[in-house]
C-alpha cells in the first residue's frame, strides 16, 4: 500500500527524518510513537503527499510520489483517509455536507452516499449533530466527524495523526475501538501517537506493530508494553 525506502526529509537545511524504511501492507495495523517533535507528523504527511521526501523513495499504491502530478495526488488521497489532531473542516457547511464533501469532490452520486453518511454518523455517534456547523462541535465530536469524513469513500488506508490528542480518555478509547473495527474490515491503519496507554489498550484487541521514531529513524518499539 505505502512503502518508504531510505526516505528522508529535510527542512531549512536540517534533517527531520533520515533513512526511514516502512512498509504498510494491506490490512496491517501500525502505531507510530516517539516524543513530540520527533517527526511523526512529518512521516504521516510524507505518506499522504502533503510533503515530498528529500531523499529515498516513497511509493503509494505502487506509484513513486515524485512522479505524481497534483491530479494523481488528488486521486490517491481518495484512497487514503486522514484524521488529524486538529481536524479542519469547511466551517460554513453543516456536518452532513462536510462528511459528504469527499463524495462531492470526487464526482460521485451524492444520493448513493447519503445512506453511507447516515450509517457513518450513526456509527461515530453524531446523528444528532448532522445539521451542526463544525465550530459548534466539541473536540471529540470533531475527531469523530473527521473519521466519518475520512471513511465516506471507503479508503484502503487510514492515517490518524494523534487522533486522541484533543479528547478525554473515554473518547480516545471509543475512537481507538472504531479504528480497530475498521482494521477488522480489512483497512490498513497507521496511528501516530505519543499516548502509550492507548497502545496498551489496543494490543490485546489487534495485532498491531509498534514503531518508534528515534534519532530521525524508525526502530521497532513497544517491547516494553
Amino acid at each position: 500500500m505505502i512503502e518508504l525506502k531510505r526516505a528522508g526529509f529535510s527542512y531549512g537545511g536540517g534533517a527531520i527524518l533520515a533513512d526511514v524504511d516502512l512498509h504498510l501492507t494491506k490490512g496491517s495495523f501500525h502505531f507510530l510513537t516517539g516524543p513530540s517533535g520527533s517527526g511523526k507528523s512529518t512521516l504521516m504527511k510524507l505518506c499522504y503527499q502533503a510533503l515530498f521526501p528529500s531523499a529515498g523513495t516513497i511509493k503509494v499504491f505502487g506509484k513513486d510520489v515524485r512522479a505524481m502530478t497534483h491530479d494523481d495526488i488528488a486521486i490517491i488521497r481518495r484512497r487514503i483517509g486522514v484524521v488529524h489532531q486538529d481536524c479542519q473542516f469547511l466551517d460554513h457547511l453543516s456536518l452532513a455536507e462536510n462528511v459528504l464533501m469527499p463524495s462531492q469532490v470526487s464526482g460521485r452520486d451524492l444520493n448513493d452516499d447519503l445512506q453511507n453518511m447516515n450509517q457513518l454518523l450513526n456509527w461515530v455517534g453524531l446523528t444528532k449533530q448532522i445539521n451542526s456547523l463544525p465550530p459548534q462541535l466539541s473536540g471529540g465530536e470533531r475527531q469523530r466527524a473527521a473519521l466519518a469524513r475520512a471513511l465516506i469513500l471507503s479508503p484502503d488506508v487510514i492515517l490518524a495523526d494523534e487522533p486522541t490528542g484533543n479528547v478525554d480518555w473515554e473518547m480516545g478509547q471509543k475512537l481507538l475501538n472504531l479504528l480497530i473495527e475498521l482494521n477488522k474490515m480489512g483497512k490498513t491503519i497507521l496511528i501516530a501517537t505519543h499516548d502509550m496507554n492507548l497502545i496498551r489498550v489496543a494490543k490485546p484487541q489487534v495485532a498491531a506493530r509498534v514503531l518508534r521514531i528515534q534519532d530521525k529513524r524508525i526502530v521497532a518499539g513497544g517491547a516494553d508494553l
Binding site: Y48, A50, H70, D71, A74, I75, I76, R77, R78, V82, Q88, F89, L90, D91, M101, P102, V105, S106, R149, L153
Partner: peptide, 16 residues
Amino acid sequence: GQVISVLRLIGARDNY
C-alpha cells in the same frame, strides 16, 4: 487557505 487545504486533503483536484 484552510478551504483549499481541506479540499486538497479530501482529494479535490486543482480544477475542482
